[in-house]
């Protein structure tokens, strides 16, 4: 019960912020909310199932292009394109998982990294279709929802997607599947002894994670009107990891806290210095050294042990 109060309360707070913040911050918030969906997806694989992937950029980019290619070449309307992107992310994750989940630990990280790199290079190779580094420009966000301005349409869709993703994540991690995922993270061998099929559970978790990542990629492309190969670079695999580590791996609200904190950290630092990469690097090193559980993970350990 208190879970639902906390999470629905957070949703209400975000909605109030979206409506009351000045336009600059409201647009930022819409951007953050879409990226949070990506982080929530990453967290399902990394935080709950223990799959440390370095290839999520591929699933995000699958969503970006799964939505952008039909819109550009087939004239598909934008909202169905969102579904196409979501499906593309899930299918891509399932395909990668079928091969990559035969490995574990460090090998799994490198295999996912290599698949993502191959995906990025493929996007560059088919430059005439994908636009490569230059990318494709998509229709303006003002055409997304009839009767709404671009900003209002962005805020509405970003919030709807975020709310759906947060509630879906809450339901998943409290379900039977969610508990089995945690069992894989904690002790795969013992779960196998108990009769679970680790491969099937991990594949399901990775595919779910891919669905979230694909939806986030599609929304990012459609809301901000741009699709490019740069979304498949390793940076887009590392960022969700950083956000999740910062907010707290294996917590439902962690991705929201981590993404917002990191976004504003870089944003504020960016107004003083151009050395923004430094903040990403230092944050990663400090987190892994001193706070591997992240913000919400530490709070859960100390005070709120009931947090999902």
């Amino acid at each position: 019960m208190r879970n639902w109060i906390l999470h629905l309360g957070t949703l209400a707070l975000v909605a109030v912020l979206l409506v009351t913040l000045p336009p600059y911050h409201a647009t930022n918030l819409a951007r953050i909310l879409v990226l949070v969906v990506f982080a929530i997806g990453y967290n399902l694989a990394f935080g709950y199932t223990g799959l440390l992937s370095l290839g999520h950029a591929l699933f995000f980019a699958a969503g970006v292009y799964g939505a952008a290619l039909p819109v550009t070449y087939l004239g598909l309307p934008q909202l169905p394109a969102l579904i196409a992107g979501l499906a593309a992310g899930g299918v891509m994750a399932a395909l990668v998982g079928l091969l990559a989940l035969r490995t574990a630990g460090v090998s799994f990280m490198i295999v996912t990294l290599m698949f993502a790199q191959a995906g990025y290079l493929t996007l560059l190779y088919f430059n005439p279709v994908t636009g490569g580094d230059e990318g494709l420009v998509l229709p303006d966000a003002a055409t997304l929802l009839p009767g709404l301005s671009a900003d209002a349409a962005r805020a509405t869709i970003a919030f709807a997607l975020f709310a759906t993703a947060l509630i879906a994540a809450l339901v998943i991690v409290q379900s039977r599947l969610g508990r089995t995922m945690v069992a894989m993270r904690e002790n795969e061998e013992r779960s196998r002894m108990l009769g679970y099929n680790p491969f099937a559970v991990k594949l399901a978790a990775l595919a779910l994670s891919g669905l979230f990542s694909g939806a986030a990629g599609a929304a990012y492309a459609l809301l901000f009107g741009y699709a490019g190969a740069s979304f498949a670079t390793i940076q887009y695999s590392i960022l969700p990891m950083l956000w999740v580590l910062m907010g707290g791996a294996g917590t439902v609200l962690g991705p929201l806290i981590g993404t917002a904190a990191m976004f504003y950290l870089v944003d504020i630092a960016g107004s003083y210095t151009t050395a923004t990469l430094l903040f990403v690097g230092v944050a990663l090193v400090l987190l892994i050294l001193f706070a591997p559980k992240g913000i919400l993970g530490t709070i859960r350990e100390r005070w709120l042990t009931w947090l999902p």
């Binding site: 440390l52 370095l54 630990g105 460090v106 990280m109 590392i238 990891m241 580590l245 050395a275 923004t276 990469l277 430094l278 990403v280 690097g281 230092v282 944050a283 990663l284 090193v285 987190l287 892994i288 050294l289 591997p292």
Partner: peptide
């Protein structure tokens, strides 16, 4: 980090960004 494999990968990713920024 006691050379824990996954933690060291995250840490060396951080070092990668720090060195890149230093060079830039």
């Amino acid at each position: 980090l006691d050379y824990e494999p996954e933690a060291t990968i995250v840490a060396t990713i951080g070092l990668m960004y720090i060195f890149q920024q230093a060079a830039l």
